[in-house]
Amino acid sequence: MKRLTKILFVLLSTVQLATYAQETFAVKGFCVAAPQPESLDNFIDFAKNQLAPNGINTLVLRVDYRYAYESRPELRGENPLSKAQVKKLVNACKSLGIEIIPQVNLLGHQSWHSKATKLIEVYPEFDETPNIQLPEKYEWPNDDGLYCKSYCPLHPDVHAVVFDLVDEITEVFEAKAFHAGMDEVFYLAHEDCPRCNGHDPAVLFANEVRKINDHLQKQNKRLWIWGDRLIDGAETGIGMWEASMNNTARAIDMIPKSVVICDWHYEKAYPTPALFAMKGFDVIACPWRKPGVAQEQVRMMADFKVNSTKKMASHFLGTMHTYWSSAERFMEELKNPPKNEGEEHISAVDTFKAMCKSIAKLEQSN
């Protein structure tokens, strides 16, 4: 009996490993800010020597206003990438089997602490909260509840402007998908906004997602967004940053199923990818700075794929490391890793490495 039990255990383990190997991730991603023009060649070398060898096949590049837009030249940021430079990067990544998905933050993140983005700097009428001034010295928490500003989704002129950016950036990057951000949207249906005041935040958020999605679908392009505004922060206990406490979570039942959800969690590997998959969305788990969290997210996504129906398993696309500083800083930290202080291991570079090693181990289990 013991011998039979042992044989069954070995057989079941072999089947599970084979299943894991068959269910490798469609998305092995990295998200970072677009490089400075003078760092472009170094970034291409980084893609060749670090991203591709580590199995990265998807690069979400946070471009925002750091491109020399021709359709809206007034929205060019400082030191923007030229069209020729973008094409050089695109061609290099194509040769490496890496798909670039450009990001321009829409709706939220229209300021950063004390500095407005080009959009509401040039078009202040789009500001959802014009009466709230950006302070010289930013502190959180503050009386205005200011983290980042939003544009008003009901302003009649805003989409004509932002869709020009979307169209141009997806064209120059030859992109099949576009990342609209849409995370940490705290200002929505604000009492200061004459258009949004009194509206349901979930409906406002969902309508904005749908409007962007519909625009992209006309060009056979797919919308990606961050997932935090679609998770109920109170019911899950996750709170106001990695989930929503401002009544947007019900939008999960109002947006198109074609939207790809980037489900970022940085302190623990919350099982929220299952929520999105059960709702019919393709989902990607996203770590940042804790290697252990990245390892758990890889394992979790693999477990979800193995223990789901065929239909639902297809929704678990993979994992994507997110880095929230410059590309130049990440490349420098790869060469000279910072020393970790304290008992808890916190390192974005080590988290990237942990994610890639965990995926490679999963794929080698065949």
Rank of each mutant, 00 (worst) to 15 (best):
E121T: 14
G198S: 05
L334F: 02
N213Y: 09
A251Q: 10
K361G: 08
P130M: 00
W288H: 10
G280P: 04
C286Y: 08
F173D: 01
W140E: 06
V15I: 15
I359T: 04
T170C: 11
R222Q: 14
A360Q: 10
W226P: 13
K88F: 00
M278T: 13
S258N: 08
K279T: 02
Y187R: 05
I132R: 07
A160Y: 10
Y67E: 00
N247T: 04
F43C: 04
G292T: 11
V293Q: 02
S114W: 02
M240L: 09
A234P: 00
T170V: 15
C196M: 08
F9W: 02
E171H: 13
I56W: 04
R66S: 15
W112F: 14
Q217T: 12
A249I: 00
N307V: 01
H113S: 13
A269W: 13
Q295M: 13
A18L: 15
A26F: 00
L106Q: 10
N213I: 08
K115Y: 13
K353Y: 10
V60Y: 15
H190C: 01
E344M: 06
K339P: 01
Q110N: 03
F304D: 01
S325K: 15
E168R: 15
E296D: 13
V166G: 12
K353N: 11
K335D: 00
E78P: 07
I238C: 04
F316I: 02
P124D: 12
Q133I: 04
H321R: 01
V349Q: 04
T351K: 02
C148G: 09
Q50D: 10
P338Y: 05
V86R: 15
F173N: 06
R299H: 09
L216P: 06
V172L: 09
Y187G: 07
A348Q: 03
A160P: 03
A175V: 04
R62F: 14
F178D: 12
M245N: 13
I346V: 06
E99R: 14
A274V: 09
E296N: 12
P141S: 12
E242N: 15
I225W: 11
P35V: 01
A234G: 05
T351P: 06
R66E: 15
Q364E: 09
L216R: 08
F304E: 00
E328K: 05
Q85R: 06
D263L: 02
K149C: 11
A116Q: 07
Y151W: 12
N91E: 08
I101S: 05
M355S: 11
K87H: 15
P124Q: 09
L146C: 12
K137G: 09
Q36Y: 08
